[in-house]
Design a protein around this nucleic acid. Structure first.
Lengths: 191, 191
DNA sequence: GTCTATAACGTGATAGAC
DNA sequence: GTCTATCACGTTATAGAC
C-alpha cells in the first residue's frame, strides 16, 4: 500500500469529520484548507470536485466498517459479543464526538449530493447490512438470539434502530439512544 | 384563526417541501422566491432570517403530526389500526414524494442549524414519542401487542426503525423499508 | 506534482421604494 | 404592510505559477 501524500490523507480525514458533524452541504473547502494552512484550491488539486471528495469520504467509511467488523470478529467470534461491540461502537461514537451514522446523513442530503457518490453509498449500506445479517443469522442458529422472520429483515431493523436512535439523541439527549439500545437487546431475547 | 397573507403560507409550504427533500442547508431563498414569482428579499419580510423560517417549518410538522394522530384516533381508536395507519403514512410518503422523517434530516444538520430551531425540534420529538408510547401501551394492555420493557423504550425503537428505514430506502430502494415495516409488526407479535 | 491567485456565481441579509 | 434594488460575503471551480 503506497503512502500517498500527507496533505491528501489529512484532507480526507478532516472532510470525514466535518461531514459527519455537519452534513455534506454543511461544510466547505475553507473549513479544510484553513486549519490545514493551505489555500482553498489546494483541495481541488487532490479532489477536483466536491463530489470526488464525497466519494472519498464514503469509501473511507467503508474501510472503517471493514476494519471494525474485522476487529469485532477477532476479539470474540461469538455473535452476542459482536453485536454488543457494534452497539458500544455506536454509543461511544455518539457520546465522544456527537457522531451519528454516516448513512443517515447521506440520506438526508441524498437529493443534492453529486450522483457519483450514490453507487458508493449503496455499497456501504449493502456491506453493513450483509455483515449484520450474518451475525444475527449465526446467533439465532446457535440459540443466542430469538426473533422471527428473515435475518435480513431483522438486520435492517437493528441498523435502522441504531441509526435513528443516535439521530434522536442529537435532538433529545443520549437517554433515548440508551433506551433504543436496551430495547434492541430485549427484542433479541438478551437480558 | 385569522387568515394570514397568502404569500406567507405559500412560503412555509414550499419551504417544508424543500427542506424534507434536500435538508436545511440544501435549499435557498431563491428556490422559494423564483417559483413564487417574487424577489428573494420578499421572503425576508415574512421570515426575517432562515432560522425563523426553520422554526416555521418545524412547527408546521408539529401541526401535521397533531392532525394526523388525531385522524388516526378517529378512524379507529384501535391501537393496531393506529399503528398501521402510521406505518402506511410513512411508507406512502416515501413512495409518493421520496419523503423521509423530518427529525432525521434535522439531526443530520443539527450542528449547523440556527439555535432557535432546537427547542422546537425537541418538542416535535417529544410529542411524536409521547403519542407512540400511548398507542403501544394501550395495545399491550389490550393484549394486542407483545413486547417486553417500558412502552417508552419500545416507542423509541419503533420510531427509530421507521426513521432509519426510510433513510436506507433512499439509498437502497423501497424494499428495505418494507422489510423494516414487516419486521416491526412481527416484533410486536402481529401477523 | 503541488499549490496560489483569481474568477464567476450563489448566499443570506439590509435599506428603502411603494 | 408588502415587496424590490442592492450589498457584502462565502461558495466551488479554473488558470497558471513554482
Amino acid at each position: 500500500m503506497a503512502k500517498r501524500s500527507n496533505t491528501r490523507s489529512h484532507i480526507v480525514r478532516m472532510a470525514t469529520d466535518l461531514y459527519v458533524d455537519r452534513g455534506f452541504n454543511g461544510f466547505s473547502y475553507q473549513d479544510i484548507s484553513g486549519p490545514l494552512g493551505v489555500k482553498n484550491a489546494a483541495i481541488h488539486y487532490h479532489y477536483a470536485t466536491k463530489g470526488d471528495l464525497g466519494v472519498a469520504i464514503i469509501d473511507r467509511y467503508r474501510e472503517i466498517l471493514r476494519k471494525r467488523t474485522g476487529d469485532f470478529m477477532e476479539h470474540g467470534s461469538d455473535p452476542v459479543g459482536q453485536l454488543d461491540a457494534y452497539l458500544r461502537f455506536i454509543r461511544d461514537g455518539y457520546v465522544k464526538d456527537g457522531s451519528i451514522c454516516p448513512m443517515g446523513i447521506l440520506a438526508a442530503d441524498y437529493h443534492t449530493v453529486p450522483e457519483q457518490m450514490r453507487p458508493h453509498a449503496e455499497l456501504l449500506v449493502h456491506e453493513m447490512l450483509a455483515w449484520l445479517t450474518r451475525v444475527l443469522e449465526e446467533g439465532r442458529n446457535q440459540g443466542l438470539f430469538f426473533f422471527n422472520g428473515p435475518a435480513g429483515a431483522k438486520a435492517a431493523v437493528v441498523k435502522s434502530c441504531l441509526q435513528g436512535g443516535a439521530q434522536l439523541a442529537r435532538i433529545s439527549g443520549v437517554k433515548v439512544l440508551d433506551q433504543v439500545i436496551e430495547q434492541v437487546r430485549r427484542d433479541l431475547g438478551l437480558g
